[in-house]
Design a protein around this nucleic acid. Structure first.
Length: 592
RNA sequence: GGCCUCGUAGUUCAAGGGAUAGAAUAGAAGUUUCCUAAACUUUAGAUACAGGUUCGAGUCCUGUCGAGGCUACCA
């Protein structure tokens, strides 16, 4: 058990001894003491004063005395300032936390393991992945890693949007403009190749609309009746009727896209245990409509369309089946949720989807609840904010979308340039260099996108993201590499945690107490599905280490004991950095 | 119009109702005989506005102003 929890528990026990009142451990507010006050942990007393009918000052004194007397080996001192009781932890207690390296796979007291399904990425097969997908992928992958570290049984899934009129558009444009060209013949990456034809469709479509408008047709009508669009709609009908030539083209072009996606996923380190295809699931959910009608949750209008009334929940009426009997988005999702449950029997199903779909996800969960589905409560929407550029929101129509592959290439280029400038990699082989640049570039990108609270929208500044100073991935990677270098050079005196030094430095203890809180931070991150906590925390650890190192190396020379201490600190910090970066999907190099 | 987010240093982000609102970056001034200077130290700078709730509010409630999203028989 980590120190904060021990402090809380001891405080609860002390209150029981003194006042015969049982206070739940969770109701005790204990935080790290602010640096400007003496002590390590602080109990906030105001919350307790009402229950106990005592003044804060008196309560603090009594509680402090009781704690220091009954746990002499644990607490060495206390002081009360206003309504705050500051407690000092014994040095050797703090030191003992150093002897237990942070191992996230063995989190003591973690909750009961659950089966958790995480759905993320959700690409369309008519366009390559962009910056928004990157935030989605990193979040989905990272929370999966955190949940796994917590001991849960996690299944990573992806739903590919592989059908619909937008797919037909790129197919049609390929037929008209490609002249038989393929990714192989042009040497292009498949997803970019197909994406280009989607753009070509829109260009041609716009041209047609313009022509029609010039001939005197109103713009609105022209946008509905442009021949190219009508052809695309017809192609979707043909696809649904499974016409062989359409299906074959569809298969071929999707295969090109998948090859491209696979390359990108591999590059960014994202993977899935199971992939669902919308072409295989879009007919699901119709059985829900029948069941909903039977249960009286849905109702049918005169035209034959089926609806669910959510006005009592403060929402609108929502369509679940069109009058022509075909299903809509929400119906498909109902079916998919059910299919996932039948396949995996999840306790929780997490959907990593942008916050523009908050309403949709709310409706989905609500309908499943109304239908009394046992898995409805386990559905959780990890809603993340959109990634915007300094110039505003990315818009594909205006060509301001940041392409994922291009961005990664640019990051690699800058990483290479900065690393070369530093002149520290002269003994690296070309293969090692390529790998190093990849590690740095992706580390920078992942850290930049994960360090922000997921639910908030964020601004992606290309220049700032490739800055290797400050609150960035490369800073942490560099710290790790430096530590490793220090440890390599000092193999003679292997760090030995059992040899306690007689004196602890202020900064060392600070770092130790910080490390102690690590497991609870990870636990909280898992609970909140929030990797940003880990990013922030690992930066703090690296920063404190650097500061510690700079200060104490100066006074180090005369004492082998201090050297021993420093080495142990280094080894432990490196371990913590490595572990936390793993949870974010960021690799740390031994040298850089 | 209705519903939902969000407004914190010049900028990008923090702060489970708790102490004097933290970092990073940009600005100013410093630090290499011991450590990989991609580092470290010092310094200046912010809760949109107006009320309310209480021992205590950036955080909760109400209103105003501002930004974004949703409100498709598209997915």
């Amino acid at each position: 058990m980590n120190l904060v929890d021990q402090v809380k528990e001891k405080t609860a026990a002390a209150i029981k001894n003194l006042y015969s009142l049982a206070v739940p451990t969770n109701d005790i507010i204990a935080t790290a003491t602010k640096p400007e006050f003496t002590g390590d942990y602080t109990i906030v007393l105001f919350a307790l004063t009402k229950r106990l009918g005592k003044a804060p000052e008196a309560l603090g004194q009594e509680l402090g005395r009781e704690l220091t007397e009954s746990h002499k080996a644990f607490f060495t001192a206390f002081n009360v300032i206003k309504g705050f009781l500051n407690l000092t932890i014994a040095d050797n207690v703090a030191l003992s936390t150093l002897n237990e390296p942070a191992d996230f796979t063995e989190v003591e007291g973690s909750r009961i393991p659950q089966k958790v399904m995480v759905e993320y990425s959700s690409p369309n097969t008519n366009k390559p992945l962009h910056l928004g997908h990157l935030r989605n992928n990193f979040l989905g992958w990272s929370i999966s890693a955190i949940l796994k570290a917590e001991g849960h049984d996690v299944m990573k899934t992806c739903i590919v949007n592989d059908r619909g009129v937008h797919i037909s558009k790129s197919m049609l444009a390929w037929q008209r403009f490609a002249g038989g060209a393929t990714p192989e013949s042009t040497g292009m990456k498949g997803d970019h190749f197909v994406g280009d034809y989607y753009v070509k469709f829109n260009d041609a479509f716009k041209q047609e609309v313009n022509d029609l408008v010039e001939k005197g047709m109103p713009k609105e009508q022209a946008e509905k009746e442009a021949p190219f669009l009508l052809q695309a709609q017809q192609m979707l009908v043909d696809w649904e009727q499974e016409k062989p030539e359409v299906r074959n083209l569809w298969k071929t072009m999707n295969a090109w896209v998948y090859a491209g996606f696979d390359e990108t996923y591999k590059r960014i380190g994202t993977d899935f245990d199971k992939t669902y295809y919308e072409s295989e699931t879009y007919l699901l959910g119709r059985s829900f409509v029948a069941e909903g009608l039977k249960k009286g949750v849905f109702f049918k209008k005169e035209d034959g369309s089926v609806w669910v009334d959510l006005t009592a929940e403060g929402l609108d009426e929502k369509l679940v089946l069109r009058k022509d009997g075909t299903s809509v988005y929400i119906t498909q999702d109902l079916g998919l949720a059910h299919q996932k449950y039948e396949a995996f029997g999840y306790d929780q199903s997490i959907y990593v989807i942008a916050d523009e779909q908050n309403y949709h996800m709310k409706v989905l969960k609500l309908i499943l609840k109304k239908l009394s589905m046992p898995y409805a409560d386990g559905i959780h929407h990890l809603s993340y904010g959109m990634v915007e550029l300094p110039s505003g929101r990315m818009k594909s129509r205006e060509g301001t979308v940041v392409d994922a592959d291009e961005l990664i290439e640019e990051m690699v280029r800058v990483a290479a340039q900065k690393t070369t400038e530093s002149g520290k990699v002269k003994d690296f082989s070309p293969t090692e260099l390529t790998e190093l640049y990849d590690i740095i570039a992706l580390g920078a990108l992942k850290f930049f996108l994960l360090r922000v609270d997921p639910k908030k929208k964020m601004i992606f500044n290309p220049e700032e993201s490739i800055d290797f100073h400050g609150f960035t991935g490369p800073f942490i990677q560099y710290t790790h590499a430096r530590i490793k270098s220090i440890l390599r050079k000092d193999t003679a005196s292997t760090p030995d945690a059992s040899e306690s030094p007689t004196a602890l430095f202020r900064l060392e203890k600070e770092l130790l107490l910080l490390l102690d809180q690590y497991l609870s931070v990870v636990r909280q991150a898992a609970q909140d599905h929030n990797p940003s906590l880990i990013a922030i925390y690992s930066f703090t650890v690296a920063k404190l280490y650097n500061s510690f190192y700079t200060e104490h190396s100066v006074i180090n020379a005369e004492s082998t004991e201090k050297k021993q201490l420093r080495l142990r600190m280094s080894a432990h910090t490196a371990e913590v950095i490595k572990n936390s970066m793993q949870l974010l999907g960021i690799r740390v190099p031994e040298k850089m």
